[in-house]
C-alpha cells in the first residue's frame, strides 16, 4: 500500500496531461503505431513519463514508467543477468504492453501477459488507477493487468508498470538446419526453446545451463545436420496468430514468404492474415468493456481491439 496511495508528482502531472476531456493518445516510439487502425484525426498526442522507478533484482521485479524504452530497461536488467518478456524492437515499455505482442523468443522468455504484475494508468476520467499488485503471485481482485495488456491504450493511458523479470539462461545458442523436421524437433526437446521455420530451414535456440545446451545439441544431431549461427532477426511484415498444429500445413494459407514460430503458432508473413470478426457475444463484451472504461470514447479513438 505504501507507495501506491502516496502522491507521485510524475504520475499526477501525467494524469493532468491526459486530462478529462478531448481525444487523447499516448505515443511511444511509434514502432507499431497503426496497430488496430489509424488514429482519428485531431487526437491530441502525448508521451508517457519515462525512467526506471525501482529495480529489485533479488525479488525479480522492476517498476518502470511506460515511456521508458525497452532497450534502456533491458540494458539495466542485463547488469544483473535478467531480462523481461517484452520484445526488443525499438519500442517503449508502455507501447509493448499496449500492443501485447510477444518476442519471437517467447518460449525462452515468457509471455508478455504473465510479465505484467501491476499496472498504473490514467483513466478516461483522468484518475490514476492501479490494478494488480507488486508480488509474483496475487489473486487479490480482478485481473486488471491482463485486461490492459494488449488493449492498445483504449481502456486507459498506461503510465507505469511493475514487471516480473527472469534470469537470463547462462547458455543461449542458435543452430540452423536445412534437413530437419521442425515439428519432430519440437516434440523431441523437453522444454523447447524458440524454433523458427521458413518452410525450408529450421533455426532453433537451445538454452539453459551450458551442459544442458551441449546435451541438447547432441540430441538434435540425430534429427538432422545443424550448424551454429547468430541470433536471427525477424522479417518485418505481417503477424499471423495460428494454433500450433496449423503450422504443419501452411501451404494452404496465403502467407507469402514466412517465418513460423513452431510450437507457438505465430507466423511472420509477407501477407496479412485475413480478418475474422469476433463472435457477436464476444464483441458485445468488448463493446461494453470499452463503454465502461471509456464512456465518451476519448482514449485512442480509431484503434479497434479485436476482429483483426
Amino acid at each position: 500500500m505504501s507507495r501506491l496511495h502516496t502522491a507521485d508528482p510524475v504520475l499526477d502531472a501525467f494524469a493532468k496531461e491526459v486530462g478529462t476531456e478531448g481525444a487523447v493518445a499516448i505515443s511511444g516510439a511509434q514502432t507499431r503505431w497503426n496497430t488496430g487502425g489509424e488514429l482519428a484525426a485531431g487526437t491530441r498526442t502525448i508521451t508517457a513519463p519515462s525512467g526506471i522507478v525501482e529495480y529489485i533484482p533479488e525479488e525479480m521485479i522492476v517498476t518502470v514508467r511506460a515511456g521508458t524504452s525497452v532497450a534502456e530497461l533491458h540494458a539495466e536488467l542485463r547488469v544483473h543477468g535478467q531480462w523481461t518478456a517484452l520484445p526488443e524492437r525499438g519500442g517503449t515499455v508502455g507501447g509493448a504492453i499496449a500492443v501485447g505482442e510477444n518476442d519471437y523468443r517467447r518460449p525462452a522468455r515468457g509471455d508478455v501477459r504473465t510479465a505484467v504484475l501491476q499496472v498504473r494508468y490514467v483513466s478516461a476520467e483522468g484518475e490514476i488507477v492501479t490494478g494488480g499488485g507488486p508480488t509474483v503471485k496475487n489473486v487479490s481482485g480482478f485481473d486488471i493487468p491482463r485486461l490492459i495488456t494488449g488493449s492498445l491504450g483504449t481502456l486507459g493511458c498506461i503510465a507505469e508498470v511493475l514487471l516480473r523479470t527472469n534470469p537470463m539462461p547462462s547458455g543461449q545458442r542458435w543452430f540452423t538446419s536445412a534437413d530437419v523436421n521442425p515439428f519432430a524437433l519440437h516434440q523431441m526437446l523437453l522444454a523447447p526453446g524458440p524454433i523458427l521455420w521458413d518452410g525450408a530451414t529450421t533455426t532453433v535456440m537451445l538454452f539453459g545451463h551450458d551442459v544442458d545446451v551441449e546435451a541438447d545439441r547432441g540430441r538434435i544431431d540425430s534429427l538432422g545436420t545443424f550448424t551454429e549461427v547468430d541470433a536471427p532477426t525477424m522479417p518485418s511484415g505481417f503477424r499471423w496468430s495460428l494454433p500450433p498444429a496449423d503450422l504443419q500445413d501452411l501451404s494452404a494459407l496465403d502467407t507469402g514468404v514466412f517465418v513460423a514460430e513452431v510450437g507457438v503458432g505465430t507466423v511472420h508473413a509477407e501477407k496479412p492474415q485475413p480478418r475474422t470478426p469476433l463472435s457477436p457475444a464476444v464483441q458485445l463484451i468488448h463493446d461494453r468493456m470499452k463503454a465502461e472504461f471509456d464512456p465518451t470514447g476519448r482514449l485512442n479513438p480509431g484503434r479497434i481491439v479485436g476482429g483483426r
Binding site: G100, E101, N102, R113, V139, F142, D143, R146, L147, T149, G150, S151, L155, R239, S241, L242, P243, P244, A245, D246, E261, V264, G265, T266, T276, L278, S279, A281, V282, L284, I285, H286, M289, V305, G306, G307, R308
Partner: peptide, 25 residues
C-alpha cells in the same frame, strides 16, 4: 446465457484478453 469462447488455441488470440481476465474471477 450466451456461449462464448475466451482465448483460443492460436498464439495470440485476438481482442482483449478476456480469457486472462476470467481466470481468477
Amino acid at each position: 446465457g450466451d456461449v462464448v469462447m475466451l482465448g483460443g488455441l492460436d498464439a495470440e488470440p485476438d481482442g482483449y484478453d478476456l480469457r486472462g481476465v476470467f481466470v481468477g474471477s
